[in-house]
Design a protein around this nucleic acid. Structure first.
Lengths: 233, 233
DNA sequence: TCCTAACTGCGTATGAGGTACGCATCGAGC
DNA sequence: GCTCGATGCGTACCTCATACGCAGTTAGGA
């Protein structure tokens, strides 16, 4: 029942005195700059030294505002998603908008997927998104548990997609590349990998095809949820 | 079209001389021990120094077998999942077995989710699992692209679940804990988070409930895929 | 008005970690 | 037995996170 300092700060439960000099550094500015660095160059490129340099201060100055680098990462993770979007009416349109918004967040800030709070998620940003997702089912006959499971299934799907997407982004070669198709074609032989070889022979990695995998899979998932909703009507 | 050294080793395309002393260290032993450490203590606890100590050698000796720590991580990631399971007949049972096998892999080796090859996935282990997943649809009327999208959707779902699971595991507090329910209940107020507050009031985080979220969501996804399959029959 | 205590910025130093470089040793094939 | 590629590893360097403590700043009380 002891609330960790990190959560106290995030929920605004920390009382503040105001003696001393005007702060040249603020938590908001530190977090925003750290997010910029992680977005542009990846989480591995974010060091306290580089961050301080970008802020025009000394590395140790950051520790007046942040207990550790790990705490900074939690602050970043909570701030980066921003407010969840307003959802259109109807659970399918609503949850679809929620899922696409979350996908955009993860694609813009792929490092979020590498951050662990070291504790079950209780940051206000995470909570706000979960609440918004659940609200998509307002007015439907689903129980609380069914709504939660549907939102979590969607979250799993979106996070998983974003994770794979992040893997594909790293490095110069792209899956959409001819080189990738050629390479995978030369390694995947029909005797060892019959199903995949057949798919490749079918043109699976042909470069011209537009990628709609995310939307297609999301439709499958939503179709399944729709079955559940309709049985309760 | 240039195959990176890492892939050459994994696919067995590296020619080997055999002069010199009997190797005290082998790649297999290094990788297996590294996996043990990462499984037990997490990826952060895996350092070249600790690994060498566990192997009874000096840190720099490892670099005779591994180009860098990053390469070691790729080797680990490829070796840890092992062979994909044989699938029972029927796409739904088959893909279900595949998904549960993959879930078990990620739960046993959660650090896999933090490893990035820095390049689109071309390791033989990954390819073998993908091929096995696609094979679940042998005999169904789905096109190659539809099969691929169904398998990828399942992969997204499983990876996302494993990622959230890994987040919940870290730290001593558990979501199943009373303390977590009390804490989230005190932070989530109906005015700021109406949908979530209602769900909590409904007993969403009551500690006694068995967690079947993974299976439930997977059933939704498979229901949606089944709709697609049935329209093609 | 002045003093004091809280608060800020930061210089120094420590220890962990990855790895480049080069030397010493080993042993299969000539 | 000689040679040359392969192996093990000691040393050294660089990057990083961060503990500690000093010095400067300013709001609130005397």
């Amino acid at each position: 029942m002891e609330i960790p300092r990190t959560l106290k700060v995030l929920w605004g439960l920390e009382e503040r005195r105001n003696r001393g000099p005007q702060p040249a550094l603020t938590l908001d500015r530190i977090v925003a700059t750290a997010i910029e660095i992680a977005d542009r160059d990846g989480l591995a490129a974010l060091s306290m030294a580089r961050l301080a340099e970008r802020l025009g201060s000394a590395p140790m100055s950051l520790y007046r505002h942040v207990a550790s680098k790990d705490e900074l990462l939690v602050f970043m993770q909570d701030a980066a998603p921003g407010e969840p979007p307003m959802l259109p009416p109807g659970w399918r349109a609503g949850l679809g908008a929620w899922a696409r918004g979350l996908k955009a967040v993860f694609h813009r800030h792929p490092w979020i997927l590498q951050v662990s709070a070291g504790r079950p998620p209780l940051e206000p940003g995470q909570i706000a998104w979960l609440d918004r997702g659940l609200s998509a089912f307002d007015g439907t006959p689903l129980t609380s548990r069914e709504r939660f499971q549907a939102v979590m299934a969607t979250l799993y799907y979106v996070r998983g997609e974003a994770q794979i997407f992040a893997l594909l982004l790293t490095g110069e070669a792209d899956v959409a590349d001819d080189a990738y198709g050629a390479l995978i074609g030369s390694l995947v032989t029909a005797d060892r990998f019959p199903a995949l070889a057949a798919a490749i022979a079918d043109g699976l990695f042909a470069p011209e095809v537009e990628d709609v995998t995310f939307e297609t899979g999301l439709s499958r998932l939503f179709d399944g949820i729709e079955l559940l909703v309709s049985t309760k009507n």
